[in-house]
Structures are given as C-alpha cells and as structure tokens.
C-alpha cells in the first residue's frame, strides 16, 4: 500500500497527537497531592451519627445528580423537603443545608474539584449565585 503525500500526512499526524496529548505533557512530572476533603467542621463534629443525606458511596459518586434533582424539585416543583432513605427530612438547599454542615468549602468541595482539574470557583459554577460560607482563614 502506498500513502499519498506520506510526508505531510505523517507530520500532520504527529502534530495532532502532540496537541491531543497536551494535558499529559502539561502535567508531567508534577506531583499533585491526592484530595483530602475535611469533615472537621463544628457542626459535623457535634453530630452523634455522622450521616449525610445519602450513604457515603452514593453521595460521593452521585452528589451532582442529587443536587440537580433538588434544584428541580425546589425551583420547578415547589417541593422543598427531602425525605432520606432513613425517613429523616432535610430542607433541600445547597446554600443552607449542605453548607451548614460543610461550612468549609475550600477544604471540602474544592479539594476534589481542583484535583479533578475543575477550575476552582468557576466549574461547577454553583458559587456565582449561591453564597459560599464564610471561612476563617
């Protein structure tokens, strides 16, 4: 088999592969510490049973879906109380409920979001409208 214009094709391919893999080159040799979300807020420490609205595994992988559902229920359906699997009820509010416990956005939310390469404070863009808790740093 003969490749027409092999030289140009190969150079083009090399450039493409180089550009496509830029994230790898960009981060190469850089040690990024693993995320370490902190749960040591005053509210959480006072809890007898340290339980989030969903079991750990579910909230860890599905918090974005849960927040999206909460948003729809509150804003569009006018339902504001969440009934968890254990029958406990919560006021569905990122700003008021989630952040009442997790009052340490920089030590909690941002830890994983930044590790995952999301732009801090910009993606996910919750905090352009919702007011982040005041942290004493």
């Amino acid at each position: 088999m003969k490749i027409y214009d092999a030289r140009y094709v190969l150079i083009g391919l090399a450039i493409f592969v180089g550009l496509f893999t830029i994230p790898f080159w960009y981060n190469m040799g850089r040690a990024v510490p693993p995320p370490d979300p902190k749960l040591d807020t005053p509210v959480i420490q006072q809890m007898a049973v340290k339980q989030c609205v969903l079991p750990l595994a579910e909230i860890r992988t599905g918090h974005m879906q849960l927040l999206n559902d909460w948003r729809t229920w509150v804003v569009r359906d006018g339902l504001r109380t969440y009934v968890a699997a254990d029958g406990k009820t919560y006021n569905m509010s990122l700003q008021n409920t989630c952040m009442d416990c997790h009052s340490n956005k920089t030590q909690f939310c941002d830890q994983c979001h930044i590790y995952a390469g999301l732009e801090a404070g910009t993606v996910p863009y919750c905090w352009t409208c919702h007011i982040a808790p005041k942290e004493n740093q």
């Binding site: 559902d69 504001r80 969440y82 968890a84």
Partner: peptide, 11 residues
C-alpha cells in the same frame, strides 16, 4: 425509584 421530595409541612 428515588427518595421522595415533599412540600414543607409548615408552608
């Protein structure tokens, strides 16, 4: 099936 969302009782 997702857990239920309900109206605030005091609303």
């Amino acid at each position: 099936d997702l857990p239920k969302a309900i109206k605030n009782p005091q609303a």
